[in-house]
Amino acid sequence: MKITRRSFLKISGATAAGTVMGGLGFDFSPVESYAQELRIKGAKETTTVCCYCSVGCGIIVHTDAKGKVINTEGDPDHPTSEGALCAKGMSLYQLINNKDRLTKVLYRAPNSTKWEEKSWDWALTEMAKRIKKSRDASFTEKNDKGQVVNRTNGIAGIGSCHVNNEEGWLYQKFLRALGLVYIEMEARL
């Protein structure tokens, strides 16, 4: 059977919707299929890789003229996933356009019972002060044996395997420049 890319997407779209809706069934009528095509017609396609497990499935993200994500679906050209996605990957759209996502810097003062919204500039300035204070107070040039260690004992840093390689590389460089040795992430768990 010859499957074109577009017909493949229709099939995989129907299957996936069935999965996400908990197997309630899906009336895959031509009308709905036509509607689905219209929604992404003219949209910009960007390829990405799923953000959940390590299979590395390909995903196509559709954005409208204003740059808003209007659809996500499996990338049929991807050699590992061949267009398929699991329930999580299928729900990527709901992760991107999620009303509960953080959109502001939040701050909780000592002994406070609530969050306060803050600007990036305020937060960066205050965090830098905290980092410097903790680092200066706990920096150790030599250990008990008199060996040079040049490390910051009072700060720990963790994370993250959700971020890109380039971001992770920058993060470890930053933490090591600060002198941290307590550096860990999910691979240890």
Binding site: C53, S54, S160, H162, N165, Y182, E184, A187
Partner: peptide, 18 residues
């Protein structure tokens, strides 16, 4: 090893570990 997170292999490679 079927690793659990999208970039746990990469971030292990980048040594965010003590």
């Amino acid at each position: 090893a079927l690793r659990g997170e999208s970039n746990v292999q990469g971030i292990t490679d980048q040594a965010l570990l003590f």
